[in-house]
């Protein structure tokens, strides 16, 4: 029994680790999309910043420097997306897609030129990564029955970025609902002309939203290559940006909902990786690929309004043209 409990807790722990980049990206998505800008470039921003973080960490031996550069790179991509979709009123989906493809090409091209390892960065040493933080008394309290392992396995032993991701949810919720900027941000995604007539710049608000989204994606990328992993591998985001997008929609563009969706999707992935090659009674070998497809399927079902209804911000995808 205790063993089963431990197994379960380890899966929860793994879910949290897998969910961390999803949470950061989903919050990024909320900022962009609440302001009315479709953001399918989460994937590309995360990929570029994963590369930047690992490359800089390898060169400077500092994970923190890597994180900073990753955030900067991701913000620049956000500004490029803004230039295309806010200032030049281009198609936001196309611009996002372009950033994703650009990131795939650039990371490998620069990676090969810099490190000559087929697009990877060198393996990062312990000191060049974000290390797990063991909370005080983890070992002593861990021996308590039932509750002890929760503290030891699930709560303790995460790196700083996991905590940052969870804080980011509170931060997002706070900004959106409790600040003047958040109110404007939501208004600009619903009815930009109202904000414009109140004398607030639509473009400025949207740019700010994209910059914040860039910061969050940058941290997600750095998490992948310098905290969860130990170096950059080509295409290492492997669709996580799109899963985060799905989670954001699944959470109905709300921080709390998106957090829960990310944890659910993370849990599915953690379960799938534990079930690899396991024989399930009646079914046979566990259909791991199908479990991994569940986030996409669930999102389609939700979007179609078969369970509840996910309403996107009303002005999403429309460039704002100032009335004259």
């Amino acid at each position: 029994m205790a063993d089963l409990w431990l197994q379960f807790l380890l899966t929860i722990d793994a879910s949290l680790r897998v969910a961390t980049p999803l949470i950061l990206c989903a919050m990024a998505g909320i900022f962009s999309e609440k302001s009315g800008v479709i953001d399918i470039s989460l994937e590309g921003k995360m990929l570029m910043s994963a590369f930047a973080a690992a490359a800089v960490a390898a060169m400077t031996s500092s994970a923190l420097a890597g994180l900073m550069v990753a955030i900067g790179v991701s913000m620049l991509l956000g500004l490029l997306h803004g230039l295309a979709s806010i200032t030049l009123r281009g198609n936001q989906v196309i611009s996002g897609l372009a950033i994703n493809i650009l990131a795939s090409g650039l990371t490998v091209t620069i990676g090969i030129a810099m490190f000559r390892q087929g697009g990877q960065t060198p393996n990062l040493a312990r000191a060049e990564r974000f290390r797990p933080i063991e909370l005080p008394l983890a070992e002593q309290l861990g021996s308590l029955p039932l509750i002890g392992p929760i503290y030891r396995e699930v709560i303790s032993g995460h790196n700083i970025l996991v905590w940052v991701a969870l804080t980011a949810v509170l931060f997002t919720a706070f900004i959106l609902t409790r600040t003047r900027f958040g109110l404007r941000l939501r208004a600009v995604g619903e009815k930009p002309e109202a904000l414009d007539s109140a004398g607030v710049s639509v473009a400025r608000t949207r740019y700010l939203a994209l910059i914040i989204a860039g910061v969050l994606c940058g941290m997600a990328g750095a998490y992948l290559s310098t905290a969860h992993g130990s170096g950059f591998v080509r295409e290492m985001t492997a669709g996580k940006g799109y899963i985060a997008l799905a989670a954001m929609i699944f959470g109905k563009w709300q921080p709390r909902g998106a957090l829960l969706a990310c944890l659910l999707f993370g849990f599915l992935e953690a379960v799938a990786s534990r079930m690899q090659g396991v024989d399930v009674p009646l079914i046979g070998e566990a259909p791991v690929d199908l479990i991994l497809a569940l986030p996409y399927l669930l999102t389609v079902i939700l979007l179609a309004g078969f369970v509840g209804k996910a309403m996107p911000p009303r002005a999403i995808g429309e460039p704002y043209v100032k009335e004259r």
Partner: peptide, 26 residues
Amino acid sequence: FSTITREMVLLIQGLIILFSGGLAYM
């Protein structure tokens, strides 16, 4: 080349999409 690979094409492709789609009005 030892330093340039076919991923270069992805870069060009992304840029073409960017210039002809996202930055169309530039």
